[in-house]
Structure formats: structure tokens, C-alpha cells
């Protein structure tokens, strides 16, 4: 893992404010997402974060010094 499980939890939590604000921001450029589309986008973002976090970094295991 690239980051600790706890840090991963926090990163996933941080996607929530980004997602809810992104919906408003996109509306300014005439991209209006429905709730379902927003949810799908959120899931995609979380999936991408999970893949990034779980993918081994240069073959190393868990980060030893992260919290």
C-alpha cells in the first residue's frame, strides 16, 4: 500500500466535499449532473483512489512510518 489504511479512509472521506462542490462547479460550465451521475462519478473517484493506494509501490509493502 502507498498509504496507511487510516490515511486512505481520510482521503476517501475528503472525496465527499470535492464531489458535492464539483457538482456546483460543473454547472457553471453547463455540465449538469443528476444525483445518480454524481454517485457514479463518486464511486469512480473512490475506485481510482483505491487502485492507486493498493497498487504496490516499487514492490514495497506497507509504508512503515505513516500513521
Amino acid at each position: 500500500m502507498r498509504i496507511s489504511k487510516a490515511a486512505l479512509l481520510v482521503v476517501i472521506a475528503l472525496t465527499v466535499p470535492i464531489l458535492v462542490e464539483l457538482r456546483t462547479v460543473l454547472a457553471w460550465v453547463n455540465v449538469e449532473l443528476t444525483v445518480l451521475e454524481s454517485a457514479v462519478l463518486g464511486m469512480t473517484m473512490i475506485l481510482a483512489i483505491l487502485i492507486w493506494a493498493l497498487w504496490p509501490q516499487n514492490g514495497r509493502g506497507d509504508p512503515s512510518r505513516s500513521g
Binding site: I3, S4, A6, A7, L9, V10, P63, R65, S66, G67
Partner: peptide, 12 residues
């Protein structure tokens, strides 16, 4: 940021 003690609920 990755080195912060995110596992500690007091800090987080």
C-alpha cells in the same frame, strides 16, 4: 502529509 498520524482519532 502521509507521515501524519492519521490512525490516531485525536489527531484526525
Amino acid at each position: 502529509l502521509k507521515a501524519l498520524p492519521w490512525r490516531d482519532p485525536v489527531f484526525t
